[in-house]
């Protein structure tokens, strides 16, 4: 009976860690422009950080073959030929970490041509780490009880 009570407690705590709304610190939205050089098979810079609400402009400059850039979660994309750079402007209204990746086959390692856009803090990572901590805490307690 006590076991189930503890289990329930941990599940409740887990749900709180996973879904409790977090206060969003008010940061005035900015306009940000990034020039992203694309080559086989990497973007440079490959890690972008913006704040939620920012208007983000990506200028994609292909430096060898035709590349694309698709942003996970936002479901938007552009393509650029060498010599014909392309721009994509969007409002970063979804918080978290998103991969962006080439969506035009550009050679063997094309599926792994990946960059990372972080909008605000990557809350999901911290929630997950919180859940992992909770899980370990629970495991340690149950070890203690048995011992």
């Amino acid at each position: 009976m006590r076991f189930y009570f503890h289990l329930l407690l941990f599940v409740m705590a887990g749900l709180v860690v996973a879904f409790a709304p977090l206060p969003v610190p008010p940061i005035a939205p900015q306009e940000r422009t990034f020039r992203i050089d694309a080559r086989q098979f990497a973007y440079s810079p490959s890690e972008l950080k913006v704040n939620p609400g920012d208007t983000v402009t990506l200028q994609l400059v292909s430096t060898d073959v035709v590349h694309g850039l698709y942003v996970d979660g936002y479901d938007i994309s552009i393509e650029a030929d060498p010599g014909q750079s392309a721009t994509l402007t969007f409002v970063a209204d979804k918080q978290g970490s998103f991969r962006f990746r080439c969506n035009l086959t550009c050679g063997a390692m094309h599926p792994f041509m990946i960059g990372k856009l972080t909008v605000g803090t990557n809350n999901w990572l911290f929630r997950s780490l919180g859940l992992a901590t909770l899980a370990v805490f629970g495991a340690l307690i149950s070890t203690k009880q048995k011992a």
Binding site: F41, S44, S46, E47, M113
Partner: peptide, 15 residues
């Protein structure tokens, strides 16, 4: 890290 990460140098080395 290598395949799904954003670090191009690792991918080059692996390929």
């Amino acid at each position: 890290g290598v395949l799904l990460g954003p670090w191009g140098a690792f991918k080059d080395a692996a390929y």
